[in-house]
Design a protein around this nucleic acid. Structure first.
Lengths: 190, 190
DNA sequence: TCTCTATATGGCAGTTCGATATAGGTGACG
DNA sequence: CGTCACCTATATCGAACTGCCATATAGAGA
């Protein structure tokens, strides 16, 4: 989703500063499916402000940089609503982890094992935190999306736990085979 | 994964042109977890070429633009190997679909239903094609990653099928409640 | 004293996206 | 049945966008 729409979405749930919008994408409810940096959020907010889709109230704070709190305007809500009617672009995923497992046979087994274990404990933590979060007060769309994310993470954890040892064994035996049998093919061919 | 490493990864499996690398990210085995455009692939290949991590053989074709076929060099393989030892960056996901379901209560139910159904049939097709692909000939890392992707897609399909009707009902009843009861809260408060 | 949190801005490098060139194949429409 | 529009294959370029890092500031915690 383009960053302007993302900002409108966050602001539709309540006023926020640019910094808080970033936090919502990093740790908040959007963190599982959206990604945006300061370098895209601040310009997006400036444009939205120029288009009158959001209002900006400057709060001078002592001891801190001025805080600019943005609120969505009625036309901003309309714009968000209309964007939601458009067909969604396909998901974009960029995963170093998948890339690494794809080339697992190029990796030392101990490095690979450590990466797999880190992934499992990381996602187990994510699932724990997601289970604890209070869903009752949230609208059905948020509950649904939350559940979908949980289903994903659980499926990943289950798969990793069930298949990780087999993968490590296969790679270990392949690598030792490479090392042991530089001349063995002749024997095998007999 | 940065685009240079992605190109090295693709080329480690066999020679390819820039166009073919793009195809590998779009439809090929990398399509589930990597995303790169021409504008990043061609500059990346040029840099890899300058660093002698890949060789480039110009193939003049009749009736078509010259094809530049790249091959990974031994130092390219070493560079790929070393990158695989580095800790992976966290996954980056950008999903319009999740964004939309998150704001499901802002959407008309028929639009929402259509998006959910399209998603299901799309991923059912993906799963079918993945089941049919010949895994036996592929290295264990590829099989593992393939299975992990399948597990994800299946979990998503299952969740969507099981929860979609409930979501649509909740939204429909919420929207009709909004329309019907502008004065009802008084009654409810009695 | 360092580093973290909170908050915003600026710039550079990297990326995306769209245009351009070329030419044969494929499908639709009259 | 002809023709035009669009798709595939292939590469390059430039404009706009984005990400990432540095900078500024100051209180809080280690």
């Amino acid at each position: 989703m383009d960053v302007k729409t993302l900002c409108l979405g966050v602001l539709s749930r309540g006023d926020a500063s640019g910094y808080e919008i970033k936090k919502a994408c990093e740790e908040g409810p959007f963190s599982h499916f959206q990604d945006a940096s300061f370098g895209s959020i601040y310009p997006a907010l400036a444009k939205l402000s120029a288009e009158k889709l959001v209002d900006c109230h400057q709060m001078s704070q002592e001891k801190r940089p001025d805080k600019k709190v943005y609120s969505i305007t009625p036309s901003g809500r309309t714009a968000l609503f209309e964007t939601l009617l458009l067909p969604p672009a396909p998901d974009k995923v960029n995963s170093d982890f998948y890339f690494m497992t794809f080339f697992a046979q190029l990796m030392p087994t101990d490095v690979l094992r450590s990466i797999l274990e880190k992934r499992i404990t990381w996602y187990e933590g994510v699932v724990e935190r997601m289970k604890d979060c209070n869903l009752a007060i949230r609208p059905p769309g948020e509950r649904f999306t939350h559940g979908l994310g949980l289903a994903h993470y659980r499926a990943e954890i289950t798969y990793l736990k069930e298949n990780m040892d087999q993968l490590l064994d296969q790679i270990a035996s392949e690598q030792s085979a490479d090392a042991e049998i530089p001349q063995a093919p002749k024997t095998a061919a007999l």
